[in-house]
Amino acid sequence: MSNKVSIVLFSGTVDKLMAGAILATGAAAMGKDVSIFLTMWGVMAFRKDDWKTNARISKDFEDHAPAMMHAMAEKKVPSWLDNLKSAQEIGNVKIVACGMTMDLFELKLGDLEPIVTDVDGVASFWSQVEDGTALFL
């Protein structure tokens, strides 16, 4: 069985970022190599300090956004970004940004949170997925 998990993070909403971060953390804890490919709104959510003000959630559940953000603040749930940092502390979690999105929005690697370590192309991303699992969020 492959020991790799790859996640394509297309969404930049807090609910999906949180789900992706927790899935990545669990995979890292179980000794899997995790690779996260940010594209489109996924890249936008990783712009430096954007997480501090990002309160968006999926369109189909947007009526729940204020309640979710309130519950997360009240229960002191760590941010999705903190979850990803913890995942990197305990395992091999690599986060890369899609080159095309970077070009589109005229972003440089230095514009993103430092946990994003590289800009990658889509073919290169798929080549490293190999026979592992790939999720799209």
Binding site: I22, T25, G26, A29, K75, K76, V77, P78, S86, I90
Partner: peptide
Amino acid sequence: RGSFCPGPLM
């Protein structure tokens, strides 16, 4: 106890 999944495991 104040920590949420996967906090206790972490």
